[in-house]
């Protein structure tokens, strides 16, 4: 694969074709805040925090660095006045959307924002609709138990028909990946409850600590072709 050369903050650099600007910038130890980016998932550019300015002044424009591939001779500014202003605006909007989300409060404070000028529809809201949980469930876990439903302003993440999903394996990846911690599950007496469904947790045959829901173990066994008994021993005891 070929390499392309371009400028990041006036520094001449190169990266393989197909690299996104975000990856290129981060490889140079320049920090760009993101909420919806995950290195193992294809970016969809939902949170818009990773905005950078590209092009020659004055013909510059703002693009999502997480979805924009590197180009030959491209001039990228990661912390110009335009970028910071746009990023502050995005943070204000996110703060109005999910006022209770700690990560957004923290990011906003870092950018000098204590209050959003926009009115919040739900002061208890945590979800920023970044879709990271939906993408994880679809692309990494591979079951697509959850999806986005309705259209804005009623858009939300939900299981089909808002009922316990038949295909959910209770793995909890959606809760793990969620940047704002809106997806929660409870574990009590060997039962994990997530998305309105209860999953029986399997205890390790050796040490007795809970490993994962039975449905998850069976799914992994099916995916890998290994006998399911192999998964009944936790990673530490193997």
């Amino acid at each position: 694969m070929g390499e392309v050369s371009f400028y990041i903050n006036d520094l001449y650099t190169s990266a393989p074709v197909g690299t996104t600007l975000l990856e290129a910038v981060r490889s140079m130890d320049i920090e760009i805040p993101t909420l919806c980016h995950h290195p193992d998932l294809k970016s969809e550019g939902q949170c818009r925090l990773c905005l950078v300015e590209i092009g020659d002044w004055p013909q510059t424009r703002l693009v999502n660095s997480c979805t924009y591939p590197v180009e030959k001779g491209l001039k990228v500014q990661t912390h110009s006045e335009n970028v910071l202003q746009a990023r502050r605006l995005v943070l204000e909007l996110l703060l109005a959307r999910a006022p209770k989300a700690e990560i957004i409060q923290k990011l906003a404070a870092e950018h000098g924002i204590s209050q959003s000028r926009f009115t919040s529809e739900d002061p208890e809201e945590l979800c920023i609709l970044c879709g990271l949980c939906v993408r994880t469930c679809r692309d990494i876990v591979g079951v697509s138990a959850i999806g986005m439903i309705n259209r804005t302003p009623a858009k939300m993440v939900s299981t089909p028909f808002k009922e316990p999903s038949e295909v959910c394996i209770g793995c909890g990846s959606c809760a793990f990946v969620c940047p704002t911690g809106v997806i929660t599950y409870t574990e009590k007496n060997g039962i994990r409850s997530i998305w309105g469904r209860d999953f029986e947790l399997v205890a390790c045959e050796t040490c007795g600590s809970y490993i994962a829901p039975r449905a998850s173990l069976e799914y992994w066994a099916k995916q890998t072709g290994d006998p399911v008994e192999r998964y009944y021993i936790c990673r530490n005891c193997r």
């Binding site: 939906v134 697509s144 959850i146 999806g147 439903i149 259209r151 089909p160 028909f161 038949e166 295909v167």
Partner: peptide, 13 residues
Amino acid sequence: PLAQVFSVATFFT
């Protein structure tokens, strides 16, 4: 996936 079908079914008016 049913989640995608439901997503489309609820998106369009």
